[in-house]
């Protein structure tokens, strides 16, 4: 298939960016979206031009490195997949495809389609873990956990930290991301000990870093490639309220 790509190019964080149009030809339906960009880059490099910079690594939908706002949607038109798992059969021959970086104030562009998502790491650092050191812990089976909670914790833990939720939200809120980690640990006995401290400091950090408020539009859930549920946001709000009253 042939496509017309309108891609955001920006030399570095301080440069002004603009859309540049590139045609690509003979793309296989079975190629992934990033493989299609590889084809474009190969052509650009062959002609001595700078390739389009984009983040990617596992190409299996698990590392959370790939991003891309494709035709107005984070990770493009398919549901429940990351850009690296998006395949060209989801596009029509001759289509114009607009490709932008995540657009959110807390995630500034580094180059072209790469953005800086380190604020997510900062949020986790503020308390998104169980504070145990290596060694001296009890035998794993001394803590029975009911299967239902273990499964719900796993559902929340499946977050890949890609930032699509923030990119999808008109307020650039990080509620889905933060609530996924808070929920995972709130659902497990291991996480209970520090629950109050955790939710308070993670929420405070999120606000500090300039992420917006949640106004319950649920665009985050709709665009999440891992189907993280907004039920986590409700659970976090409960945790937060509990923390405040106790």
């Amino acid at each position: 298939m042939d496509l017309k790509l309108k891609i955001w190019r920006q030399a570095d964080a301080n440069a002004e960016g603009k859309f540049v149009t590139y045609p690509v030809h003979n793309i296989s339906q079975d190629a992934s979206f990033l493989e299609m960009l590889d084809v474009l880059n190969e052509e650009l490099v062959t002609n001595g031009k700078e390739p389009v910079a984009f983040d990617h690594d596992c190409r299996e939908g698990i590392c959370g490195m790939c991003s891309l706002f494709i035709n107005g949607r984070p990770h493009g038109p398919d549901d429940s997949v990351t850009t690296c798992q998006l395949h060209m059969r989801k596009f029509k021959d001759g289509e114009t495809v607009v490709i932008e970086p995540w657009r959110a104030k807390p995630f500034p562009v580094i180059k072209d389609l790469k953005v800086d998502r380190s604020p997510f790491d900062e949020i986790i650092r503020s308390g998104g873990y169980v504070s145990v050191n290596t060694g001296g812990v009890p035998d794993a089976n001394t803590i029975p956990i009911n299967k239902e909670n273990a499964d719900l914790a796993m559902d929340a833990a499946a977050c890949i930290g890609c930032g699509a939720c923030v990119a999808a939200c008109k307020n650039a809120s990080a509620m889905l991301f933060v609530s996924a980690k808070v929920s995972q640990l709130a659902l497990l006995p291991q996480g209970k000990v520090e629950a109050k401290r955790r939710v308070e400091s993670m929420v405070a950090k999120m606000d500090d870093l300039g992420f917006g408020n949640c106004t319950n539009t649920y665009a985050c859930e709709a665009e999440c490639p891992k189907d993280i549920s907004v039920a986590n946001i409700a659970r976090m709000n409960r945790e937060f309220l509990c923390a405040k009253v106790t």
């Binding site: 794993a140 299967k147 273990a150 914790a153 833990a157 497990l188 291991q190």
Partner: peptide
């Protein structure tokens, strides 16, 4: 396994 469970790694469980 003990360490990871203590960290809150959600390993698969039986009923």
């Amino acid at each position: 396994i003990d360490q990871c469970v203590a960290q809150g790694v959600p390993f698969a469980r039986e009923y």
